[in-house]
Design a protein around this nucleic acid. Structure first.
Lengths: 230, 230
DNA sequence: CTGCATACCGGGAAAAACACCGGATTATTT
DNA sequence: AAATAATCCGGTGTTTTTCCCGGTATGCAG
């Protein structure tokens, strides 16, 4: 690198659970002058071990959803233990909750996997200088949540979580009451409480919420998809 | 390229709904001699239009799960309308059903997004020559399904699939009828029919089935998990 | 002791979901 | 012309869900 024009090369780590994607991103970043990929990890845990072993990148491209340790947890850890490392969240989900939570966890920007390569470059430049990278989505998400009461994830009791599991089956509330050894009125109480806490208006809403937020696992995700019209 | 050793360059199309991933893959493939990326698309529909406009790649790297038109449908279309185009499925799901269905739809190979770049190269070489690329996963998946009664997934009509989408929301059947511009009785008919076809006994059962079998996508799968007891 | 959260329960009534009876018009295929 | 499939619809009745009102008992922290 030339000695003039502030010629430093920023070190970037890629954290994503898909190796091919990491390799591809590494190629893309390699073509952007001023940046260099100095490390990769398949999840937050592995990355943290690398940091503890002495690696200190200037910036990490952090996937949100990963096994073992996800993006939010990783970003939080970084903010506490290595605040000089800038975080740019990179994900395929564009829903507001993800955005907000990553920003709250310390991410300086949020870019989608179907962004333009130009946008990636802009985001890198912005974040590496300590600024925040804003896309219209991020702005919108933040606008929609300022003023809102921070939206802490609701705290659920043991019984409520137990009830949710059953609510995601075809059992009626009466049958759930039997399984849980309580009266119908009691499960109705759980239902009411959960509708309030989770901001849903029907059992279907509860089920979708539970699956979305991984309160229940739908075991084998796969089945076979039914055919189209014939 | 030298004139000897069968020096042709194979044209590859990338079909994946994440632009950054496509660009990254394009870089990776560009570094493999003998291959050239000749086109990209964000879903099967767009790709098919490109083919109909005259594009004929030697091979397509086809994502399985995409909006608008998914990998299976796209592979099926290719087999019918452009059988000379080899298909290599590229996905993050390693479950058997996806594998089997893509193979059945005409894919010559199945590679995961967290594969090694070496594996990608091997897969390309294999598929482009008309052979099948086998990983242990694929072999296992195929072994596990031979002998099984094939279990054809139920055929759903357009309206039924439309109904299912709405059934996974908090709309009542009356409201669904309004959205779908038909009478309450008609959506009730869809419900009955689907309960029968999908072997469920309640709307919740239908919702869980639909999510399991990816008839509906719940956008961001991961949200934040509500807290434990306090 | 007081306040608070949890867990639990009863009864009544309206709305939604479910079940079963019947019917119809189109369009495509054979 | 007959058969098949997809779309659509009316009526009736039961069961379940949803939403109210009210309540008790326990444990735990300020």
């Amino acid at each position: 690198m030339t000695a003039q024009q502030e010629a430093r090369e920023y070190k970037i780590c890629l954290i994503d659970d898909h190796k091919l994607f990491r390799k591809g991103m590494a190629q893309l970043i390699g073509r952007i002058p001023g940046y260099k990929v100095c490390g990769e990890a398949g999840n937050g845990r592995d990355f943290i071990e690398m940091v503890q072993a002495g690696l200190t990148p200037d910036l990490v491209l952090l996937d949100v959803q990963m096994p073992v340790m996800n993006g939010e947890e990783t970003a939080s850890w970084l903010r506490q233990h290595a605040p000089s490392v800038r975080v740019l969240a990179l994900t395929m989900h564009d829903d507001e909750m993800h955005i907000i939570r990553m920003i709250r966890a310390g991410a300086r920007g949020y870019i989608l996997k179907d962004a333009e390569p130009e946008d990636l470059r802009t985001a890198l430049d912005t974040v590496v200088q300590g600024d925040f990278y804003h896309t219209p989505q991020v702005s919108r998400a933040m606008a929609n949540t300022i003023g809102l009461p921070a939206e802490e994830p609701p705290a659920l009791t043991r019984r409520e979580r137990e009830f949710i599991e059953h609510a995601c089956t075809e059992l009626t509330y009466k049958e759930i009451a039997d399984v849980m050894n309580c009266s119908l009125r009691t499960v109705d109480g759980y239902r009411e409480e959960l509708f309030e806490k989770l901001a849903v208006r029907s059992r279907v809403g509860l089920v979708v919420y539970a699956i979305r937020h991984e309160l229940v696992q739908l075991g084998g995700q796969g089945g076979t998809r039914p055919a189209q019209d014939r």
